[in-house]
């Protein structure tokens, strides 16, 4: 939508209305960086999943799996990045619902059921104000056949869950082959006797 001539741009509402989903080229660029984070994780012996949370062209959160270090099995890349965004909001005194509504998550693997539910919960406030947008909140690489919460095992973003935040959009398949390759490399190294990779494409 083009802004109508004569409308002001100074108010917060206008800024929110002017927010548009990132163009494909831009999505590719961020995904390239997320893949870089995943590669770093692989070099450090961690599950190679990388993610970024981008708000107005700025990376507010960047994460990789931290389950082993923290002994907390919920510390997936997405949860680590979400906490960084929450901290940023706290420091800058920003309204977190407004920030999350305009933040796009780029992640190399489809978020699991837990992370998908967490992302939904973070969209709560604006949903109540009826300011739902069609922004693809999540852009991901390969599917997560074991735990995927955005279509593979369950479909949390669009299921009917009226008390669990707001629905959101996902786009999958960005650089999926590279993301799968990283995971295959990891699982091969972890268990050289494994007959098959744990992540594979369902045919």
């Amino acid at each position: 939508m083009e802004p109508e001539p004569g409308t002001g741009t100074g108010t917060a509402a206008a800024a929110a209305a002017a927010f548009r989903p990132p163009e494909r080229q831009e999505q590719e660029r961020w995904m390239q960086r997320a893949l870089g984070t995943a590669k770093e994780a692989l070099e450090n012996g961690e599950v190679p999943v990388g993610c970024l949370m981008v708000y107005q062209n700025e990376i507010l959160g960047q994460g990789r799996n931290e389950v082993n270090e923290t002994k907390n099995a919920t510390r997936h890349a997405e949860m680590v990045a979400i906490d960084q965004v929450l901290e940023w909001c706290g420091q800058k005194g920003r309204d977190r619902a407004e920030v999350f509504e305009h933040t796009v998550l780029y992640v190399t693997v489809e978020p699991c059921i837990m992370c998908a539910a967490a992302l939904r919960l973070l969209k709560k406030l604006l949903f109540l104000l009826n300011l739902v947008t069609d922004i693809p909140l999540v852009v991901f690489g390969c599917q997560n056949e074991r735990f995927g919460g955005c279509g593979s095992v369950l479909n949390i973003p669009t299921d009917d869950l009226q008390h669990s935040g707001a629905p959101f959009q996902c786009i999958g398949g960005y650089r999926a082959e590279e993301a799968v390759e990283l995971l295959k490399t990891f699982y091969k190294a972890e268990n050289p006797n494994a007959p098959k990779s744990k992540v594979r494409k369902k045919q």
Partner: peptide
Amino acid sequence: VMCSMALVH
């Protein structure tokens, strides 16, 4: 959902 899946993990 988030908590139930966290308990699976």
